[in-house]
Design a protein around this nucleic acid. Structure first.
Lengths: 176, 176
DNA sequence: GAAGATTGAGAGTTCAATCTTC
DNA sequence: GAAGATTGAACTCTCAATCTTC
């Protein structure tokens, strides 16, 4: 188990204070924002992983599984998985390896293009994904520790950040 | 280099749509929030690492270095570093190992308690931390892609999340 | 030559177990 | 027995290099 990590003060506020004292005022808010996001991710990932532990799934594995669940045919090229999950091709290879090792996914060759490999979800993969989703929904997503309004606030602000790096392109005609 | 990962639509909005269609409305917002935070962390960490690359420092290493910079004596017990950075003791050992390997930090025994080890920043460590901070401030923290107001919004909402898991204790009389 | 996938290296994280010291 | 630190295992991520196929 991890050590008790509660502090008698807010470490992020403390860092911000240090930044200001060193005359880095213009960077203080940005630093605190970045640090906050890092910490939020750490907290949420821990919650998700705790809920997923009984299923022996990591969040990365779960995400890949769900992506396949949502496809019509239950399969998708590895490269496309990487695009959708926004991760490096090497990460996709790694995650699909684990899932395949557990019999939750199967690699199948692409009919027309010998370069591409498809990941196809198995019956067991689909069943496990369903169970895991029920747990995740009830134990994490339905009680994330934030009101629905605050959740939307967070989503919207982050969307600005994401658009800034070209994370998604709006459909033609949708932009403004 | 990572593959081009721009999509013709927003993958998070797409996931939310799928969640709703499966009747998981009560979990949809939470799922989108969690996914957004994961993605934001990924984006920001990439920016930070790009700025830190010339100094051959990771963000974890930089954070530890800065923590030592802010102490009066330039040294701190490994356990305390873990508390302040909110990471597992094993992570601290790992990061201090790298920093020590580069001569930026030195392990020194604690005078009174033989169990504890102190990490002491070296002259070179201090110099590198200063240079890295200048780069990080000007290239990332001073232009994070969000207005100061939105930054504060993000920080404040995440503070709610952090308090929810007991991330810090407010001073007596501050609560409510 | 470009695209899709894989491999190996290097870093980070956590957990469980271990060792020494209080 | 509890604390502080370390070690090894397992996982994720990225990058750079490689291989095959288009």
């Amino acid at each position: 188990m991890a050590a008790r990590r509660t502090l008698p003060f807010d470490p992020i506020a403390e860092a911000a204070r240090n930044w200001s004292e060193h005359g880095w005022e213009k960077a203080t808010v940005g630093m605190a924002m970045v640090t906050s996001v890092m910490r939020a991710q750490q907290i949420l990932l821990a919650k998700v992983h705790a809920a997923l532990r009984p299923f022996d799934l990591t969040f990365a594995q779960y995400e890949a599984l769900m992506l396949l669940t949502f496809t019509r045919s239950g399969q998708m090229p590895l490269g496309k998985i990487g695009q959708r999950l926004q991760v490096h091709p090497a990460s996709v290879t790694n995650v699909i390896d684990r899932l395949e090792g557990k019999g939750l996914v199967r690699r199948v060759p692409h009919a027309a293009d010998l370069r591409t490999t498809l990941a196809a979800i198995t019956k067991r993969g689909r069943e496990l994904a369903d169970q895991a989703t029920r747990e995740l929904n009830s134990r994490v997503f339905e009680q994330v520790g934030l009101s629905e309004e605050r959740c939307r606030e967070l989503i919207d602000v982050i969307a600005v950040l994401r658009e800034d790096v070209g994370d998604f392109e709006l459909h033609p005609g949708t932009r403004d």
